[in-house]
Structures are given as structure tokens and as C-alpha cells.
């Protein structure tokens, strides 16, 4: 990966932007794309919308927000009760590092040690009620000087290459900072004109930013660029692998929230395969993405989704293959050409 791109992705991945509090990404994105756009604004929902050209009819969106936590109670002993923002499985959270608030106050998620697990009752996974965040405070008064009720937290994870060959990256919030990253590069690309790019909010809270966007913007085609679960792990067989890393972007025919235009997806596959751009579909229909909200646009848009195959999304650290990032970027350029041709039909 070029250093400039690596640095951009690192900055995006490490930013503090849990769902409902996405402002931290604004200065980074604006700095990156401002020279290339004709219109750049935040709507009343908080979505960042960038236009290239006049009256664009194509929309590409990626969500800015990531999963995280909200502090819901500051306890007598200085520990913090918290709950999830978006979906994070509490079973594996004990001992994970977090940072709280845009000031990035460090904390550790604590639970009772494994030695004290209730053997007689069998194993019960931790729920949020069993977990607290320790920020090193001994009393409520002390803790209240550092955090407030309703402050948010995200995983404290460094973005870097995973392997010495630099073929895989690891970091938090690859869902969906990868999408933001592709959109930034599309905006830089002089070949791509007359497009609206939307960086949406509150995807993890129920596809809400894209919902508000779809009620106000007019477009004929909408593409939600997101990340999806690659479950290509040992001892996982058949459809349960969902999709695999190293095989390019994932175009789905349906998921937990949408059914897409079968014919359109078929023709996209044909085009991408004819151009030797790696592309795959997925074999389990779970979850949803912003395409579901785009499909319900007041103007009646055709919407679909293309995602990067990531492992371990919604956890403290996810991975993506560099070759998939390139395949995704190429697929998006190709999809842009395809939709332009489709429009003039």
C-alpha cells in the first residue's frame, strides 16, 4: 500500500467516532477531499455530503460510525458501568482496552476472574451487567472529574500491518472506515465525476443516517460501501464461511435487511469478471447495511451493497487483506462506469 494511503487509513481507523458521535472524522475527511468537490456540507442529521459535478444522480455512501460503548453509571467505587453502542458481544470483552471520550482517557474492561467462575452452575458468558470499566479511580468523586454520564468509549487498538510481508492490515473500526477510505480515493480520482458521496452517521444504531439522507437527496442509484464478516476460519465449512479474504469485494443478492435487483447484480458480476477484478458473493444472509435505507429513498432509487471481507468486525481488532482493498477500489471504479452507462440507457 502507498504510504499516503496507509497513513490515511491509519488515521481513519484510530479516530474516535462511535455511533452517534461521529464529529471527530469531519476534519480528517474534509482535509482529504475538499480540493476535489463542488459542494461539501453536513446535513441536519450529521451526515457529511460531498458532491462532484452538477446535479449528480449516483450516490456512494459509507458510514463513519463504529461500534462502541456508552458510560451509563459512575459507581461508588470509581468503576464505570457501560452498555453497547451498536452490537458488541459482551462474552469476550473482559480485559479489552478502551479509550473514553474524544480526550481518549484510557480504561480496561474488568470482570470476575476465571478462577471464580460459577462452576456449579455451568458456564455463563458475561453480560454487560457483569462488566465494568476501570479507569484507575477509587471513588465516584474522583471518577466524575474525568468522565461524565453518557460519555462514549471505543476500543483502544493500534492500526498497523499484521504480517511482515504487509499483506494484511489490522485495526479497529475497519467497519466502516475502509468504506470511508475508498470514497476518499474515489473523490480524488479525476475520472470519477457527477457523483454524490455521503459519509453517513448512526449506521450501527439502525441505518439511521442513511434513512434521513434517503428522505432528502435525489438519486437513481445508491451504493452502500461497507465491510462484512469473513468467516473463513479453520473448522468452519460450507456456507458458514460466508465469504473469504483474498477473493475480492463481496456483492450480495440479499441480506438481513434488503433484497437487491437480481438482474443488476448478475450484470455487475459479469462486468467485473470480464475485467478480471476479483469479486465474490456471500453465503449467509445476516445483518443489514445502509443500502436498506437507500432502497427506501423517496425518489425510489435502486440500491445495492458492496463490502470488504473483514474478519472479526465488531470486535476489538479486525483484519483485512491489502489485495482485497485494491480489488474493492477497482470494483468501485468499474461500478461507477457501469452505473453511468446504465443511467444513459
Amino acid at each position: 500500500m502507498e504510504t499516503r494511503d496507509f497513513e490515511l487509513l491509519k488515521k481513519l481507523s484510530e479516530a474516535f467516532a462511535p455511533t452517534g458521535e461521529e464529529e471527530a472524522l469531519f476534519p480528517m475527511l474534509i482535509e482529504e477531499i475538499k480540493p476535489y468537490v463542488t459542494k461539501l456540507y453536513m446535513d441536519r442529521m450529521g451526515n457529511l455530503i460531498a458532491e462532484k459535478g452538477n446535479h449528480p444522480d449516483l450516490l456512494f455512501c459509507a458510514h463513519m460510525d463504529e461500534v462502541g460503548f456508552m458510560i451509563t453509571e459512575i459507581c461508588e467505587d470509581g468503576s464505570l458501568h457501560f452498555d453497547q453502542l451498536g452490537g458488541v458481544d459482551p462474552a469476550h470483552l473482559a480485559s479489552k482496552r478502551v479509550v473514553i471520550g474524544s480526550q481518549k482517557l484510557p480504561g480496561v474492561i474488568c470482570a470476575r476472574p476465571v478462577h471464580f467462575s460459577r462452576k456449579e452452575k455451568g458456564y455463563t458468558p458475561n453480560s454487560y451487567a457483569d462488566l465494568t470499566i476501570d479507569i484507575g479511580c477509587q471513588s465516584r468523586e474522583e471518577a466524575e472529574k474525568l468522565v461524565g454520564l453518557g460519555d462514549n468509549a471505543v476500543f483502544d487498538t493500534e492500526f498497523s500491518y499484521l504480517d511482515a510481508c504487509e499483506s494484511t492490515v489490522k485495526g479497529k473500526a475497519l467497519d466502516d472506515r475502509l468504506g470511508c477510505f475508498y470514497l476518499c480515493r474515489m473523490i480524488r480520482d479525476p475520472e470519477i465525476q457527477n457523483v454524490v458521496f455521503a459519509f453517513t452517521v448512526q449506521e450501527e444504531s439502525g441505518l439511521r443516517g442513511a434513512h434521513a439522507l434517503a428522505e432528502s437527496e435525489k438519486f437513481s442509484f445508491g451504493v452502500a460501501v461497507d465491510s462484512t464478516t469473513a468467516s473463513d476460519l479453520p473448522q468452519t465449512e460450507g456456507i458458514f464461511r460466508v465469504c473469504a479474504q483474498g477473493k475480492g469485494g463481496v456483492l450480495s443478492y440479499l441480506d438481513g435487511a434488503s433484497i437487491y435487483d437480481h438482474d443488476l447484480i448478475d450484470r455487475l458480476f459479469q462486468k467485473l469478471e470480464s475485467e478480471q477484478i476479483p469479486i465474490q458473493t456471500k453465503t449467509l444472509c445476516a445483518g443489514g447495511n445502509d443500502a436498506s435505507s437507500l432502497q427506501k429513498a423517496v425518489c425510489g432509487a435502486k440500491a445495492f451493497n458492496i463490502s470488504t471481507p473483514c474478519r472479526y468486525i465488531h470486535g476489538s481488532v479486525a483484519t483485512a487483506r491489502v489485495c482485497d482493498l485494491e480489488a474493492m477500489q477497482n470494483a468501485l471504479s468499474s461500478i461507477y462506469q457501469f452505473l453511468n452507462a446504465e443511467k444513459s440507457k
Binding site: 446535513d43 441536519r44 460503548f69 452498555d83 453502542l85 439511521r208 434521513a212 428522505e215 432528502s216
Partner: peptide, 18 residues
Amino acid sequence: PGGTGTSATAIQVIDGGI
């Protein structure tokens, strides 16, 4: 976190956001 279970849930996402 996750929402308020009130009318505001619906109002916030109307028409570009209220």
C-alpha cells in the same frame, strides 16, 4: 445507548434529519 423508545426515534431521521 441503543435508543430511547420514544417518538424522537422516528422524528430524528425524517427528511434529511430533524
